[in-house]
């Protein structure tokens, strides 16, 4: 685990994030609060040599690639031609979430284009990064995000934990077609405001 774990904040936001942590962990993901993207990069770098960045995140935050390269990691940003091949079996990937829902421990990820989707589908370990200001209480808050986008082409997923199945004798097995491991990282520092513009 990254060394960048900080204490959950105080007050109403603190209670909300405490619930989020509980629910994220109940879904078999890990939860941590980080001051900024540099800590996200450090965590990702600790997990694998090749790190994929979702193209939409890369466009909004090009400096993230440089941070990872600063750790000596190879950055993969899937292209238009054969995005699935680009990220096939990449050990670690980073995606930005539009919000995190405390009620369920879900992260809402908007990924209309195929090259964004292959990142969250094909990587082995997925880092979902959400700004602290984008932590919301209820599923209805996600509905309120979706409603104004109705009637326009789009794809958004509430992601809650690593992929799993219980199809054989109801025995829970983690890691089927999606990631085996998921880390939810909540940005609490000044970077969080910058991240706002990416979602």
């Amino acid at each position: 685990m990254s060394s960048a774990v900080t204490q959950t904040g105080a007050g109403a936001d603190g209670a909300q994030r405490t619930l989020l942590r509980t629910k994220v962990e109940a879904a078999a993901s890990t939860y941590q609060e980080v001051a900024g993207w540099e800590e996200v990069a450090a965590h990702a770098a600790s997990l694998g040599q090749r790190v994929a960045i979702a193209p939409s995140l890369h466009a909004a935050l090009p400096s993230l690639a440089a941070m990872l390269e600063g750790h000596g990691r190879t950055v993969v940003v899937p292209g238009e031609d054969d995005p699935a091949a680009d990220v096939a079996d990449v050990p670690v990937a980073i995606v930005a979430g539009a919000m995190a829902v405390a009620e369920t421990g879900s992260v809402l990820v908007s990924e209309h284009e195929l090259r964004d989707r292959v990142v969250t589908m094909l990587c082995q370990r997925l880092l979902q990064v959400v700004a602290a200001d984008d932590v919301v209480d209820r599923l209805e808050d996600a509905a309120a995000w979706l409603a104004p986008r109705g009637g326009q082409a789009g794809f958004a997923s509430l992601m809650t934990g690593p992929s799993r199945t219980a199809d054989i004798e109801r025995s829970l097995t983690i890691g089927v077609q999606g990631p085996d491991e998921v880390d939810v990282l909540v940005l609490t520092g000044a970077d969080a405001a910058a991240e706002e513009s990416t979602s």
Binding site: A27, S106, L158, M159, T160, R164, G178
Partner: peptide, 8 residues
Amino acid sequence: PITVYTNF
């Protein structure tokens, strides 16, 4: 409480 993926 919710499935792993709830896609819209």
